[in-house]
Computed example of a mutant assay.
Amino acid sequence: MPMEEIQTICICGAGTMGSGIAQVAAQAGFRTIQYDVQTNMLDKSKAAIAASVQQLVAKQKLTAEAAQAVQDRLRFTNNIADCKADVVIEAIVEKPAVKLALFQQLAAVNNAQCIFTSNTSSLSITELQEQVVHPERFAGMHFFNPATHMKLVEVVKGKQTAQYVVDTLYALANTMGKVPVHCNDAPGFIVNHIARPYYLEAMRLVESGAATMEQVDAVMEATGFKMGPFKLMDLIGLDINYSVSEIVWEALGKPDRLTPAAMQKTKVDAGELGRKTGKGFYEY
């Protein structure tokens, strides 16, 4: 499907990432469907998007009329039959079996032109597409948190992804006001592969007693990073960040240098996941 024919986008998953992507799509002028099996998650997403849009009005970045238009373009549903769109962006839990079950349902309700994408941050697009109905129309479209602010989008091509699909998604990301980058499927894609040493070395420094979390964050921020590694992990979610570390580590043959950090696992096991739980490496 060429970019100019895309009118409706469906985002599956109403968590923080899914909500952000839905707002981005609606602000870019697309009819936007947000799907989640949990109605309470949809209610939270609807409220969060409304609050975010109103903040833009207050900052004079959107007019009241434009804000209302964004709201009017959004539809929230827990019925999979409503998920008929030109492009589907999946942003649910990082479990292959759950994602694949969803894509089977989505394939059954969509036409032969629909493009299916996953916002996965680390799972193999090639391995996922081996088990979907239309592998040539399946690709990765990886946004970064918070999706409303972060410009980068990784457009990930699996081995069976048709070239027109990645070209269309690249153009779509541009239309959404993002900065897309093409990448072939690889463990962690580009950003999460490069970022593993950033997080892991920071935690090793603290585990060894060479520095405190506060010192590490302060030094990195003083060198130009907007956020130190510990603050960034808290923002992303320690559970998500740890899961990515495990996936990349295992996909690369478990090299010692990329071994997931014990201090992060302790936090995850304790349910201290960062900003979303009120406590991670820091308290909020």
Rank of each mutant, 00 (worst) to 15 (best):
96 P>L: 08
197 P>W: 10
154 E>P: 00
139 A>Y: 07
3 M>L: 15
268 V>D: 09
62 L>V: 12
38 Q>I: 12
266 T>E: 14
191 V>T: 09
85 A>C: 03
268 V>E: 13
77 T>P: 00
12 C>Y: 02
79 N>E: 12
241 N>E: 08
163 Q>F: 01
270 A>R: 12
75 R>N: 04
28 A>Y: 07
284 Y>A: 15
192 N>D: 05
72 D>Y: 03
102 L>Y: 03
46 K>W: 01
8 T>S: 01
9 I>T: 02
177 G>I: 00
134 H>G: 01
118 S>Q: 04
167 D>T: 15
269 D>A: 14
49 I>M: 10
183 C>S: 03
171 A>S: 13
249 W>C: 05
247 I>T: 14
111 N>H: 14
31 R>A: 11
249 W>L: 02
62 L>N: 14
141 M>G: 04
254 K>N: 13
159 K>W: 06
110 N>D: 06
136 E>P: 05
62 L>G: 11
207 E>Y: 02
224 G>W: 01
274 G>V: 13
3 M>C: 14
274 G>W: 06
278 G>S: 09
193 H>L: 14
53 V>T: 15
85 A>D: 01
4 E>A: 11
213 M>P: 00
14 A>N: 10
105 Q>P: 07
260 P>H: 10
24 V>Y: 00
56 L>V: 07
40 N>R: 15
115 I>H: 04
39 T>E: 15
176 M>S: 06
158 G>E: 04
279 K>M: 07
29 G>N: 13
145 N>V: 12
152 L>D: 05
175 T>N: 11
124 S>C: 06
171 A>L: 12
222 A>F: 02
240 I>F: 09
242 Y>G: 01
68 Q>D: 14
255 P>T: 13
117 T>N: 02
207 E>N: 05
